[in-house]
Design a protein around this nucleic acid. Structure first.
Lengths: 164, 164
DNA sequence: TTAGCTGCAAAAGGTTTGCAAATTA
DNA sequence: TAATTTGCAAACCTTTTGCAGCTAA
């Protein structure tokens, strides 16, 4: 009995902790949505879940696939509308990594992407470097750069070495 | 008679000089095209003329319109194929200034574009700044950046001032 | 003559839109 | 109930592709 109780408490705590990571964050966002006069629907929850649980650079299509695991007939257009809405709320941003579809990000995770045109891999530019570059651009041109919206293409270190 | 002759010579010289600027360049490119096994056709000449004479950041559509002033039924697909071909020859590059269509450039005129998302204007980043940024990226990440392929979005000095 | 181009029409890929039905608050 | 969302289908925009006929070399 004692043991069982203890185990249950532990288990509850674990569940609770797990929830705080993603679900509380999700709830906060849903609340912001409601505060802005929006409604909380199954597709919206599912998109947030997909964003919070999934990989790092999902496209709208990726998100649609994940959402459909749970709600099989959510339309892509719905996904796009939800993403647009979340961008307006300042929760998300979209980024163009290359010629293909855009990828989506939580706004707080914004970073500059280096995309190698030889191997296709994406690496983040260190935040300090990004800041220094923005400062550099600003000093030169008085321009407040959002370096994260489009990626920086080029050739990564590994591919430079390989190529010769 | 003397005068007439003189005038004609002067006029010829002027024409000659005018030709050197764009037409000789055009001829060099056409020659490179031939050397690569390609053929010189009316649409190709017209695309080069449009690129050499026109504004600074033409899209494929812009070029199609200008080409059609002279050759009314050149297809857009032809324009795209010509542009692709000239890119393969290293004569041109295309640049993504924003969410719309790509714009085309002579490779030698490559520069980094700052695009203001408030007013839409495009300004070049000083070459020295661009070099310094590339160096910065390379030192931080070993990545050889092609900063010119995608623009840098942000808010220009004028709009920053205006907005508050 | 023949490899290379072109026009046309259609398709592809990503994103947006119109609208009637369904759903949230 | 009223306002918001959704699914579906169709449209949109930029770019690519297939193919039969045309053309430069």
């Amino acid at each position: 009995m004692k043991n069982v109780a203890r185990i249950q408490i532990t288990s509850d705590n674990a569940t609770q902790r797990h929830r705080s990571a993603t679900e509380i964050r999700s709830e906060m966002i849903l609340q912001a949505l409601r505060n802005a006069g929006g409604r909380v629907t199954a597709p919206r929850r599912a998109v947030l879940d997909a964003l919070l649980s999934g990989g790092d650079h999902p496209t709208a299509e990726d998100l649609a696939l994940r959402v459909r695991d749970v709600h099989p007939d959510v339309a892509v257009s719905t996904i796009y509308r939800i993403l647009e809405h979340l961008e307006e709320l300042g929760v998300l941003v979209h980024v163009h990594l290359g010629h293909g579809p855009a990828v989506y990000h939580f706004a707080e995770d914004t970073h500059v992407h280096l995309v190698c045109r030889a191997c296709g891999h994406t690496a983040p530019l260190p935040a300090a470097t990004a800041r220094s570059i923005s400062r550099n651009v600003f000093n030169a041109s008085g321009f407040q750069a959002d370096l994260a919206h489009f990626s920086i293409t080029g050739v990564c270190g590994a591919c430079t070495t390989t190529q010769r």
